[in-house]
Design a protein around this nucleic acid. Structure first.
Lengths: 168, 168
DNA sequence: ACAAACCTTGTAGTCACTACAGGGTCAAGC
DNA sequence: GCTTGACCCTGTAGTGACTACAAGGTTTGT
């Protein structure tokens, strides 16, 4: 099966498949005489495994580890449990901080219900004041645990801590 | 005040401040004869506004818009409300999909409590089987609304849809 | 013979930073 | 006057997980 067919069967973009191969997650397939990638059922399974793990929010690095554990059958599964536990912890912290975020946004939204001039907009005023005074709740979205180089997709406020680090 | 002092007062890295300037979020400060950036209270306010919005999970593009609304006082605040509502919607959807994710991970974790060989690890087995059969819950983490180029913190499974797009 | 649909590689862009190289400036101390 | 160290500058490249495109080669059908 060619890459397009694999893409169709898995719902994964062909460019992403090539990307996974480059990243060493997917084993390099055989090639036809003209250089086309030829996949078999085994690689279909490999890719589905990757996609399923991705759908559980795991990073490619985590999946690489998991695949290594899978390959080495003498390995005991302590590390696997640890990996899943870490994933659960990560997701849990994300949920917590997003909930806080939601609260703050809803409170903000509450400042303005009718359409009027931006000069009188309660939301804008609140934002400006909050930035000035900054005695705010100041959660740290998915933060702190951010050592290493995880970069964690936490857009928001990352390491800057604001209340802690800021104004001493 | 020099950039280091501004960094200290806001808890924002100096390199990030320069980045915000490059991106046009922060107005270009005056320069000393030797080219050093000199900030005043107004720019301190500007930066705090940006950081506060970031801590609410807004993208730099959103903040740019918000700042434009702030500047143009004749503008009415409908767009501001819309922006906040969209932000709330985004956060809400993220929470929902993360909750689902958490359930799946907890169910997965439940497959293995003791340390034993990876060959017998319930987690690994479950992952492999789930990838093969794939009659799974198959949530789509923060997906779908992903038009444009939002990139949205969604690690997970992004557009690939899996159950929808895959295997027709 | 030719077009459409596929495949290849390589490079650059996304977002919000972060890190570093390679230099310049400034104040304090000797 | 000279050195040291803390600061500042610009510019470029890297992060994660893709996505998009350019410029070309191959295969298949009419």
């Amino acid at each position: 099966m060619l890459i397009g067919e694999l893409a169709r069967q898995t719902g994964c973009d062909a460019e992403t498949i090539r990307y996974y191969e480059r990243e060493g997650l997917l084993s390099a397939p055989q090639r036809s005489s003209s250089g086309y990638r030829r996949y078999n059922a085994e690689q279909l399974g490999e890719l589905n495994f990757i996609l399923h793990c991705r759908s559980l929010g795991m990073s490619l690095a985590d999946i690489r580890n998991l695949a290594a554990f899978k390959a080495d059958h003498r390995h005991d599964c302590e590390d696997i449990n640890l990996l899943i536990d870490q994933q659960i912890g990560k997701v849990h912290r994300q949920i917590e901080s997003l909930r806080l975020l939601e609260q703050q946004l809803l409170a903000l939204r509450d400042k303005c219900h009718d359409t009027h001039s931006a000069a009188d907009c309660g939301i804008l005023q609140t934002l400006v004041e909050a930035a000035e005074g900054e005695p705010c709740v100041c959660h740290t979205p998915f933060g702190q645990d951010n050592h290493g180089h995880s970069h964690d997709h936490d857009h928001a406020a990352k390491k800057n801590g604001r209340t802690q680090k800021g104004r001493p």
